[in-house]
Lab assay of single mutants.
Amino acid sequence: MGTYKLILNGKTLKGETTTEAVDAATAEKVFKQYANDNGVDGEWTYDDATKTFTVTE
């Protein structure tokens, strides 16, 4: 398990959240659902060194 971070750079929603997941693929699924639930759809990037996903609208 590891802690993964999501940085939201949406047009109307900005912020950060974290999740505990077994791997990056699992964290990505959780974060994409979170972003979708909050109406954020954009370009995704992932930094393996910091376990950080970023979505920018």
Rank of each mutant, 00 (worst) to 15 (best):
Y34I: 09
A35E: 01
D41S: 10
T54K: 07
E43H: 08
K11S: 14
E43M: 10
Y4G: 00
E57Q: 07
K14L: 11
W44A: 01
N38Y: 11
M1S: 12
K51A: 08
E43T: 12
N38M: 14
D47Q: 07
G15K: 15
N9R: 12
V55P: 01
A27E: 00
K11L: 14
T18S: 15
K14H: 06
D41Q: 12
T12E: 08
T56R: 07
Y34N: 02
Y34K: 03
M1R: 09
T17M: 12
Y34G: 01
N38I: 06
L6V: 05
A25T: 09
V30W: 14
Q33P: 02
L8K: 01
A21Y: 03
T50W: 05
G10P: 03
V30E: 13
K5S: 08
F31G: 00
D41P: 04
T17F: 14
K14Y: 08
T18V: 07
G2S: 12
T18A: 08
V40W: 13
D41N: 11
I7V: 07
G15S: 13
G15E: 12
E28F: 12
T56W: 08
D23L: 04
T54S: 06
T17I: 13
T45S: 11
W44M: 04
G10F: 14
D47T: 07
K51Y: 14
K11Y: 09
D41Y: 10
I7S: 04
T45F: 11
K32T: 07
G2I: 14
K11P: 12
L13E: 11
D48N: 11
A35I: 07
T50G: 04
K14T: 13
T17K: 15
V30K: 07
G42Y: 03
G42I: 01
T52N: 02
A21D: 02
Y34R: 03
K29F: 14
Y4C: 01
A35Y: 03
A49M: 14
D41K: 11
F31Y: 02
T17N: 06
T26N: 09
F31V: 02
D23R: 03
I7W: 05
K5G: 03
E28Q: 11
D37G: 06
D37E: 12
Y34S: 02
Y34F: 15
N38E: 11
K14F: 08
A35Q: 02
K29V: 10
E28N: 06
G10C: 05
Y46K: 01
L13K: 09
G10Y: 11
A49R: 08
F53E: 00
E43C: 05
A27W: 00
T12K: 09
A35N: 02
W44Q: 01
A21T: 09
F31W: 02
F31Q: 00
A27H: 00
L8F: 13
E20L: 14
A21I: 02
K32S: 05
A49H: 10
E20R: 08
D23S: 12
E20Y: 09
A25Y: 15
T45Y: 14
D37L: 09
T19F: 15
T50N: 11
K32G: 03
V22G: 06
V55K: 01
E57P: 03
V40M: 08
Y4L: 01
E28A: 08
T45A: 14
A49E: 12
N38C: 04
G2A: 15
L13H: 12
D23V: 03
K32Y: 07
K11V: 13
E16D: 06
T52M: 04
V55I: 10
E20G: 05
T26S: 15
G39V: 04
N9S: 09
Y4V: 01
K5V: 13
K5A: 05
F53I: 01
F31R: 00
A24H: 10
A49S: 10
G39K: 14
D48M: 08
E57H: 06
T19D: 03
E28M: 15
K11R: 14
A21C: 06
T17S: 09
K5Q: 05
E16S: 10
F31E: 00
D47K: 04
K5R: 15
V22P: 12
T19E: 04
V30N: 10
Y4T: 00
K29G: 09
A25C: 06
E28H: 12
K51T: 04
A24L: 15
A25V: 07
T56A: 08
D37M: 11
T26D: 09
A21N: 03
V22R: 14
Y46V: 02
F31N: 00
T50H: 08
G39R: 08
L6M: 05
A35L: 14
T19N: 04
A24N: 07
Y46W: 04
A21E: 04
N36I: 14
A25D: 11
A21W: 02
D41T: 07
M1K: 14
F53K: 00
D23C: 04
T26C: 05
A21P: 01
K5W: 08
G42L: 03
G42E: 01
V55R: 01
W44C: 02
V55N: 02
T12G: 12
T54V: 09
G2Q: 08
Y34T: 03
V55G: 01
E28I: 11
A49W: 15
T56L: 07
W44L: 03
D48A: 14
K14G: 08
N38V: 08
T19L: 12
G10V: 15
E57F: 10
A27M: 01
Q33H: 08
G15Q: 14
V22K: 15
A35C: 05
D48V: 10
A27Q: 00
A27S: 02
V22F: 15
D23P: 01
V30C: 05
E28P: 00
A24G: 05
T17L: 13
D47F: 06
K11M: 14
N38L: 06
A25W: 12
Y46N: 01
Q33D: 14
V30H: 14
L13W: 13
D48F: 12
W44I: 03
L8D: 01
K51R: 14
T45H: 08
L8V: 13
Y46T: 01
T50C: 04
D47M: 06
M1Y: 12
K11C: 06
T12L: 15
T17G: 05
A25Q: 13
D47R: 04
